[in-house]
Amino acid sequence: MAQHPEIPLSVSSPVTKNPWQALRQLTSARIALGRAGTSLPTQAQLEFQLAHAAARDAVHQSLAIELLAKQIRALGLPLLQLHSAASDRQSYLQRPDLGRQLDAASAQQLEHYAQQHTNQNYDLALVIADGLSALAVERHALPVLKLIQERCGSEGWSLSPIALVEQGRVAIADDIGQRLKARMSVILLGERPGLSSPDSLGLYFTYNPQIGCTDAQRNCISNIRQDGLSYPLTVHRLLGLIREADRRQCSGVTLKDDTQLPQLSTSGHHKNFLLP
């Protein structure tokens, strides 16, 4: 192919790279992306689009419920498969009120179960719901559940059957906890997917779960995933919350977790290079 005589053989790239790319080791934030003019270069642009597509898929992917149910039963835990009043994803996304309550069949199933087990007193109702990321639940719910099972076993706390809920939001654990007459509830569910974290799991803890509890009565442990909060630290913090809630007979904003946060926030921190 003929070369245009005025164009040198090695044309420099139209992208201006940033000389501070080494800083990318310090954060997963999208820094030092370079620029085309002052705009985002093609490669960074396409990487963003890919991440957004993956996060969108995570929102709309449905939970592989049978597989998870099988895995939970394999842990030797009884299981209740439930569904919220939100019939599908569309309704789930637009009607948070429906995602917070059980559908009629599930409510009946739970009532029936409770009637057959009237002598059971549960310390902890355990709920797993798809939330906004089925991917998060598929990746992280089982290992966290396993650790909770072990630790609660050694503390002598009794666990309810695992309630596995489709199209569920956080407050559905109030409904379930109340019907099972559990002293406390824990729900694991997929958080809203971030671009760089489509699989982040959240945990919410409520003392004396009742329909109508507000978010101020819950404690949240979030960002449970590979590059976020580890499973052992998650369960360590949960046990701290349970003990403190047990002692003070409440959960939520009044339960400050002053003791555990410094441990979390300073672990593995790097020195700030901008300061001496």
């Binding site: 501070w20 800083l23 310090l26 820094i31 979390l264 672990s267 921190h269 790097h270 700030n272 901008l274």
Partner: peptide, 16 residues
């Protein structure tokens, strides 16, 4: 912002 408030991670985004 940084998910664990890591000073170096914050500084990297800040400088960028």
């Amino acid at each position: 912002n940084h998910p664990t408030d890591d000073p170096a991670g914050i500084a990297a985004s800040l400088l960028d």
